[in-house]
């Protein structure tokens, strides 16, 4: 395949691209110059503290909120010109699912299927079965538990076999079994040549299901990388020495070390992963010898807290 052909294929694989996406609500800059790319087959985590601009971003992608500046491309085409043809290929559950309370789960899906148009008759049973809601499909939506509502929300996104699924807190209110079910379902959805855009405050869940994440704070994207890369960036060195106070003083004086903290008998050093030998050498020059020197694995949660300055996720 030629170089041009390869580039074309890569471009075709980009399902969502935002360029300089900005939204102002009066004087408030909810989203500032957001640049994102989401590829087919990816599960993309979108994280940020409360009020960071996640829901506004999702609203703009879905055409519910008009951007102040910037552009959104879906499936390689500008959203602005032909939103409804492109949004037909997108499914979404925004925050908590919302359906008509006086209708059953099945009737709600039928109403949506009619609004969408062209949905085959057997599709409703199929999606209800996929989210394990078939046996309660005849119950009123208002009688559903939060978990059932979430599952109905996911079922509604599957009605039109979307190529891009936006899920905002899909496991909110689910019991552990339901959470696991949805968590297992998300990567499966992406493997079906779709992309999943997942907003969640359950960071361990994002860590388990997402390939890449973006972290947004006060409307500005402060990190966007594959999960493993972020976790590697967040790795610390864990050192055990006989005299931690002196060792901390020595290491704090080194320009390539970002921070040194004491945790019981250990020093936790924020330094590049490849600097293990240099740290060891610096200590040895002062006759301090580490009895333990290891890389300390970090969770996405600690990376998130570090990047957002300790604010909780939304």
């Amino acid at each position: 395949m030629s170089g041009i052909g390869l580039r074309q294929e890569a471009a075709n694989d980009i399902i969502l691209r935002t360029t300089g996406l900005t939204k102002h609500f009066g004087k408030l800059e909810a989203v500032k110059d957001l640049n994102l790319e989401l590829r087919r087959g990816e599960v993309f985590g979108f994280l940020g503290p409360n009020g960071a601009g996640k829901s506004t971003t999702v609203g703009m992608i879905l055409g519910l909120v008009a951007p102040t500046a910037g552009s959104i491309e879906l499936f390689g085409q500008k959203l602005e010109g032909n939103p409804w043809a492109l949004l037909r290929r997108v499914g979404a559950v925004i925050e908590e699912p919302a359906f008509y309370p006086y209708l059953s789960g099945r009737d709600n899906l039928e109403a949506l299927a009619r609004a969408i148009g062209g949905i085959p008759g057997n599709k409703i049973n199929e999606v209800l079965e996929r989210v394990n809601l078939l046996d309660r499909a005849g119950d009123r939506y208002s009688h559903y538990s939060m978990g059932m509502k979430q599952r109905l929300g996911i079922a509604s996104t599957l009605l039109r076999e979307p190529e891009l699924i936006l899920l905002d807190e899909p496991t909110s209110g689910l019991d552990p079994a339901g959470t696991k079910e949805v968590r297992d379902l998300i990567p499966r959805l992406a493997h079906e040549r779709r992309a999943v855009f997942l907003c969640s405050h359950l960071l361990h869940e994002v860590e388990q299901v997402c390939n890449r994440v973006a972290i947004i704070k006060e409307g500005v994207m402060i990190a966007c990388a594959p999960i493993q890369e972020l976790l590697t960036q967040g790795q610390m060195l864990q050192i055990k020495v006989d005299d931690p106070a002196q060792a901390a003083a020595i290491l704090s004086g080194l320009p390539w070390i970002k921070s040194v903290k004491r945790e019981n008998d250990y020093l936790i050093v924020d330094a590049p992963k490849e600097s293990v030998s240099r740290v060891n050498q610096a200590l040895a020059e002062h006759n301090i010898f580490a009895s333990e020197l290891t890389s300390r694995n970090v969770s996405l949660e600690s990376v998130f807290l570090q990047l957002t300055g300790g604010e909780s996720g939304d």
């Binding site: 519910l64 409804w84 925004i94 699912p97 919302a98 359906f99 609004a115």
Partner: peptide
């Protein structure tokens, strides 16, 4: 009130049609 406006808008072919 029921917040179904977003669900319906995502599924409908345009706001004016809805």
């Amino acid at each position: 009130n029921w917040r179904t406006i977003r669900t319906m808008l995502i599924c409908s072919e345009g706001r004016l049609r809805l």
